[in-house]
Amino acid sequence: PPRGCYAAEEAGERTFRCSQAGLSAVPTGIPNDTRKLYLDANRLASVPAGAFQHLPVLEELDLSHNILAHLSGAAFRGLAGTLRHLDLSANRLVSVPAEAFMGLQIQVNLSANPWRCDCALQEVLRLVRLAPGTGTGIVCGPGARADLVGQEFLPLAGEEELCGTGWGGAQRSTDVALLVTMGGWLALVVAYLAHYVWQNREETRRPLKRAPVLP
């Protein structure tokens, strides 16, 4: 195993620990039967695409207390059927791509990051379950909108829609446009029917012309 890392059996689970190992990248040589992987308290700045796809039974992943500032949209590719717990707390994340969590059935800790509190984060919260007791730790950082800095994000996300445009918001915009178009067509149909009924009523009110009397 990489220096500072070791494999162990913990509660009957194959575990691989690389805590405080001075790592600056996701290490190679992790046994592919690993169920719990601890990469916490290192110097990881990013997680590239497919970083863990060679771990087909991975259930728990701890990336807390690093310096993560970037997460690939395919960072957890290959883990959709297995990963259950993910810890991203105490990093430098300001935003994460929602697609990184698509298809995952996970419980995640997102606390203690300087979040921008944007649409992407709102979309992520629609896709995941938060680890118990960690929601209050999701706070808007210096890069957030001025009126949001220092505020807890969960109450804000419940009150304000941040996805007017962009990922997720585009679909909602399309839906709204479709509804408006359908409403316009419906209004035209109603107007036509009303005009038709009114015209027919006028026709029925006109006196019938008498036929000319033949000599």
Rank of each mutant, 00 (worst) to 15 (best):
C18R: 07
H195M: 08
G168M: 05
P132V: 02
G169L: 04
L93K: 05
L208R: 14
H85R: 10
V213R: 15
G81E: 12
S173W: 01
N109A: 15
E202K: 15
I67M: 04
L55I: 12
L55R: 10
E159A: 15
S111T: 01
V180G: 03
R205C: 03
T15M: 06
R84S: 11
L68T: 09
G150R: 01
L178V: 12
G135K: 11
E160M: 10
G50H: 08
L58M: 09
H70A: 07
S173N: 03
Q53V: 01
R129K: 10
I67A: 14
G150S: 07
R3P: 14
A69C: 04
C119F: 01
Q107E: 15
F16H: 14
A11W: 03
L63W: 00
A157I: 00
S111Y: 02
Y192L: 13
L55T: 13
A69S: 15
A69P: 05
A21R: 06
P48F: 01
D118Y: 09
C119D: 08
P142S: 04
A187L: 15
R3M: 02
P1Q: 08
W198F: 14
I138K: 04
E10Q: 11
G184T: 06
R145D: 13
P132C: 03
N109Y: 05
P1H: 07
T136W: 02
Q107F: 03
V108T: 08
L178K: 07
H65S: 14
E60R: 05
E59D: 06
G184D: 08
H70Q: 09
L61K: 10
L39D: 06
